[in-house]
Design a protein around this nucleic acid. Sequence first.
RNA 1: CGGGGCGUGGCUCAGCCUGGUAGAGCGCACGGUUCGGGACCGUGAGGUCGGAGGUUCGAAUCCUCUCGCCCCGACCA
Length: 582
Amino acid sequence: MRWSNYFIPTLREDPADAEVISHKLLLRAGVIRQLSAGIYSLLPLGQRIALKVMQILREEMNAIGGQEFYLPALHPAEIWQESGRWDAIGDEMFRLKDRKNTDMCLGMTHEEVFTAIARNEIRSYKQLPQVWYQIQIKFRDEARPKSGLIRVRSFIMKDAYTFDVDRAGLDKSFMDQREAYKKIFTRCGIKFLIVEASSGAMGGSESDEFMARTPAGEDLIVSCPSCGYAANLEKATSRLTAMPDEAGLPAPEEFPTPGVRTIEDLVTFPGGAEASRQIKSLVYIATIGGDPRPVLVLMRGDHQLHETKLGDALGSTAVRPAHPEEIRELLGASAGSLGGVGAKDKARAAKMDLRIIADSSLKGRRNMTTGANKDDHHIRGVEIERDIPVDSWHELRIVESGEGCPRCDGGVLEVFKGMEIGHIFKLGTKYSDSMGATVLTQDGKQVPIVMGSYGIGVERIISAAVEQRHDEDGIIWPQSLAPFDVVVTITNMKQDDLRQTGEKLYSDLERAGLDVLLDDRDERAGVKFKDADLIGIPYRITIGKKVAEGVVELYDRRAKQSEDVKITDVVDRVQALALAGS
RNA sequence: CGGGGCGUGGCUCAGCCUGGUAGAGCGCACGGUUCGGGACCGUGAGGUCGGAGGUUCGAAUCCUCUCGCCCCGACCA
């Protein structure tokens, strides 16, 4: 392409609306423009980059037997009603009605459509396994779109679905996808890690998230540098050093604590206890099976509760802290004086059924201090398993950096931010059951198809690449995603020898199969250099004064170094570099 | 949805507090001088000051409502 009439609207200054690096640079480099909140247009450079990503996705999906489909983005409500998600999903789904007043929606994912195809067409185990995928637009009415392309309402996704006769088949399909994903992100030049994640409302038994480490990410990742353990904070656990407790008292003992409202208060109160020797007691209202139920959550005094973990542990669709009035009604005290001892009796007296759930770090603890369910009073000498009727134990606390790795000895956990760039799920039979997709097995039994689903966001890959690969001058694309392999910069268009050399190299490089951008604009060299750095083309051939000696410069965007190369050698050099680079 | 911020030529912003009829830099067009890291000089085009209503002799400026965008939080198949 010739830059002089190619549309690359670069910006000299950071746009006011952009906060994160990738957003600023993608706008400044003329890759994207915003249409509305969370809605972006890909400009010619952006489309070239997206096409390169999609090509990689296709190649790796095809390599594991994937078959490319193209499904509609407009769906009838009917199939979503069948799967149960028409009601399960809230405002995040774009819903509309057609002229006949039939409910429709814009697809936010395609389990339903693919399952609908499978149930109509697949009858026998002999037709399995199937690996189906598409690269297509998705619509999600995000509560808060943000950070440029990182969280948007309309985006391109590669989504794949596998169909197997049994669990073992799914395990293999899942591993195939997992390996393909590793190759994809590696080819895209993104540093990533795979973390255990909560499946959430997607359903299914197991899911892995692919995360790109970047401060612009929205998730917190816990990882162990020693053994490679990695998990989303909502799923992560840690190993805590055991706390030696003295035997304490033969029975718990109540004592007055006037004015003590918080864990901190009790630490400094004479006769109080340090935070790690206190039991923090929180009342939550959890919706379980559609009914709100009070739950008393017990945590170590210096630990924080992770609400998602609480919800997962309870099998609850929603949890919220109880209001002060609800707490008083239930336990007869204010939030600063609650405890597990005698709590069930108090609740029963108030005609309520209280469930007690405790963080596993409290297991076996003795001589603890906690609230007495009586304002301005606490209880000491509590031996939790002796004195409190805990219904169940779970990992509920927020893991913090510096804690011990749960998988290996001696590993120390780090916590950092990451961006989700891919997510793979073992769905099992959630959709095949609800939508009736079955096959006959070899022995003539009708069984639900076992499914998996696997997604990668194209714009997320682009954002992650920019987040991880940039410097103060602009983007540094990996060769695999770069909109052009090389830019030929003619430093002065008024000099015929420079122009002719540039033109010749341009056509020679294109003939060699490279994507070439010829900067033939009537601009000063400095402007061209700045723009080339900004848009991040991996190599630049600078056509300057040394042409008289038969030499041009080859500039490496990433290394920011240039070397003189004979004009006769430069095509071979760039070709070799482009093949080798990523 | 809760909290905060911002809407003024294409872009980045000033002007608003204290009302008097709109400015700068960049970009753009033309002419000239320049020509290897975002040149310089001159001339010029370009703005219903997000929108509606109100107060006032007079509103970018004050008041009310509304729309949009950004950030934090909640949420996130």
